[in-house]
Design a protein around this nucleic acid. Structure first.
Lengths: 205, 205
DNA sequence: TAGATTGTTAATCGATTAACAATC
DNA sequence: TAGATTGTTAATCGATTAACAATC
């Protein structure tokens, strides 16, 4: 149930490594990698150790190998198909985000209740809600992003889980109830901002 | 450095309590509140205990009192002023989000490099980047939201910290470096989605 | 009263950090 | 070689869970 911090760190290592690779570096030390991500070198080595990732004593880690191994762990050998419900401002931002494809994630379709959206030109087709089941079956989609207003989120969520979706990224402010077995991850900007403001006020802690 | 889970839970309790209050409930048990938020009753009581919040043996917690106490903890007696940099799709979604005002957060101004945005009618004025320092000083703003593309985020971040901002909500995909003392909270949708997909693939764990 | 619920102390669990041997 | 870095084991820390007395 607790969102796996280790997984998040590994993903961050990977994204830093891709940047370092781009810059032409061949190897990296745990210390450097940790500094980039904001964790200690021990943390980096420990994380790698858990996944059987080996470096070279004194020589650090080979960046190409490391990216390859992390790619295996995250199954970056094929595209992961995702659907997006709600093509409002946030939904559109997500549709336009280039970073997904680079990381082997593909949004295969968008859905919205507003017919205007079906005609507009997006990078992927946008359909009415009624077509959700069809698309899920056709593409074998397992993961969905909910970007509708809070008030509509639970209904959309039910529809998705009924259609066989087993993991949901919820970007609406609603707290969603899902059947057992369905994984849900919430991104609540309002909550994050309130938490940040609290920390700002109580800087001493 | 680790984002305070306890604070996040307290904020979630508060939001559930506001809903329950709206529905006309007068009291709530730790068990009920926990269920709504997805934690155990013990967790709820422990969290409350840490902040000196008292309930009634057998009678549960008085919702009005609880909301009031949580309001004190989070300083909900006055508006918290925030600025928003980047009025693209995500930025516009944030500008339009009604939930901030309800929770005593006010976005006092937006900023963008695109002059078209200055003329458009938003709920708050949108200015060129050059006006950031002026607005920060005028309103005494301490917290900023960065919603610009990843490539521009670090530069914006530097500008903000130089201008005296001490906490940043970063919604860009960039990993930002900030001077010591500045609190940064990242919301990375791409990362969250990758993490979710990993969990979906490895459902056994 | 009996049963239900709170509030707190103790036990457990997991994650992070420290220490250090291995070795390139 | 000496110094630097990895990889792992042990120690610490903090958060969660369990247990249970208090009591309404």
């Amino acid at each position: 149930m607790p969102i796996n911090k280790k997984i998040n760190r590994l993903l961050q290592y990977r994204s830093v490594l891709l940047r370092l690779q781009d810059l032409g570096f061949g190897t990296v030390f745990s210390y450097t990698l940790g500094k980039e991500v904001g964790v200690t070198a021990e943390q980096v080595r420990k994380d790698f150790s858990k996944f059987g990732i080996k470096g070279n004593k004194k020589g650090g880690y080979n960046i190409n190998e490391l990216i390859h191994t992390l790619g295996d762990i995250f199954h970056k050998d094929h595209l992961h198909k995702v659907i997006l419900i709600g093509i409002g401002n946030i939904g559109t931002a997500i549709l336009n985000y280039k970073g997904f494809r680079e990381n082997m994630i593909e949004i295969v379709a968008g859905f919205d209740i507003d017919p205007v959206k079906y005609k507009k030109k997006y990078t992927v087709p946008v359909y009415p809600m009624e077509k959700i089941d069809e698309v899920i079956n056709e593409y074998g989609v397992k993961t969905a992003i909910i970007a509708v207003p809070g008030i509509a989120a639970q209904e959309v969520c039910n529809r998705l889980t009924n259609a066989g979706i087993n993991s949901i990224l919820n970007i609406s402010p609603a707290v969603l109830k899902v059947p057992p077995g369905v994984i849900i991850q919430n991104i609540q900007i309002g909550n994050a901002l309130e938490s940040l403001i609290y920390q700002t006020i109580n800087l001493d802690e």
